[in-house]
Design a protein around this nucleic acid. Structure first.
Lengths: 222, 222
DNA sequence: TTCTGAATTTAGGCTTGACTAATTATATTT
DNA sequence: AAATATAATTAGTCAAGCCTAAATTCAGAA
């Protein structure tokens, strides 16, 4: 029996999933920042979720939290909803990739399993969303990610953009304008070890990108 | 500045709109029944909404409630969302008309104005939803309803179905099976004054329908 | 007109999930 | 190793919205 969690709980689980993707527990402060909720409130909620009958979180005071298998499944369900919705807003309603986040953020909590199945089928069970983020499968597994951060590439290396990890609409619009969207080929022309700027070539044009951008772009190396 | 109301408030306004369509105020009890909320709680909410800065409700103790112009606009907004969503679930995701209500009931509270505009445009600014219910216009006016209840027709009268007012999935499925859906032509063959049963002809076949059905079907008289 | 039952309202309580302020742990310096 | 800064937790509040139980008001019947 799957008890449906509240919108708040779903948000917590989703953020914790994201913050623990690197393998380490999520801190109260980081979670609070991501959720726009005060740390004290976050402590309260994680203690509640860790204490539930089938616990959703693993939690030791002052040590941060991780998801239990149950919590992870719930998180992947929400993330699947989110990414399917973003894909679908772009493909069927003509949204731009910088316009979908907010809308999906609200819709993800209210769609039925039936709705999820219908849009997944209508979209042909997509692997990635409009930003290139991997979409958890219907059985709630996250596909393996084989991408490399553009920030790790050096002179002469090249690749194809797989994913742009950002919800910043202004940045996304800018990247779209200069053609840095999934599936585009990129070549690194130069690297500056001092500021970590990368000079890259895209479609005959070159751009110098700072780390705050290159760290958000992920590629399949050519 | 339009302050967005909570989902609860939106539900209250929507139900009050429906209950006051006949011109008389909505009673606490009727509202409680429609909302599946205890009458005492309804009283509390009604008093709160009637006391807000721009009041949403007109309320006198023991006299029931009506919507103020502000409340009516908010109600029509929700109803527009609901009906556009139902239309859109049917037209683009292949839902059947008996499957859309629950889904729309949840989605109606979270879609943006942008989303509303996009689906309205994609659907060609429809006048009616899949049940034939009129969809409030973008400037929040309810189009005039010129339909007549099937229950008011008598022997020899005929018409075209405009609307089926029911959220009962079983009934909707049954009506669909016997072909009683919007746009279908109906002719009254017989009327029984004792039980108010009507014998009608649809596509060469005849059916005897009770008042609980005929009162929910609305037509344009031929 | 008075009575009775249904409808409505009041009173008081509970849960969820947020907040602030104050306290306690942990980490970082010196 | 002590002092301090940062992170996390506790304690106590609050607003929404629901609930039950106990009044109260109204409307129709006697």
């Amino acid at each position: 029996m799957k008890k449906s969690s509240t919108q708040s709980v779903q948000d917590y689980l989703k953020r914790i999933y994201e913050l623990t993707e690197n393998g380490s527990p999520a801190s109260t402060n980081d979670l609070a920042r991501e959720l726009n909720i005060k740390p004290a409130s976050v402590t309260g909620m994680i203690q509640k979720l860790a204490a539930e009958k089938p616990a959703l979180l693993e939690y030791q005071k002052h040590q941060g939290v991780t998801l239990t298998p149950t919590g992870k499944r719930a998180a992947l369900e929400v993330i699947r909803h989110h990414r399917l919705l973003e894909t679908w807003l772009v493909q069927t309603l003509g949204y731009a990739w910088d316009e979908v986040h907010e809308e999906a953020e609200r819709l993800e909590h209210v769609i039925s399993e039936d709705f999820e199945r219908r849009i997944a089928a209508a979209l042909g069970h997509p692997l990635r969303d409009p930003h290139g983020e991997l979409i958890p499968t219907a059985d709630l597994k996250m596909p393996a990610d084989k991408s490399t951060s553009l920030s790790a590439l050096r002179k002469k290396q090249a690749g194809r953009i797989l994913c742009v990890k950002s919800a910043d609409a202004d940045l996304l619009r800018h990247l779209n304008e200069i053609g840095l969207t999934p599936n585009t080929m990129i070549e690194v022309i130069d690297y500056s070890p001092f500021d970590h700027n990368l000079t890259i070539k895209v479609e005959k044009k070159t751009y110098v990108l700072g780390l705050s951008i290159t760290s958000k772009i992920f590629l399949e190396i050519a």
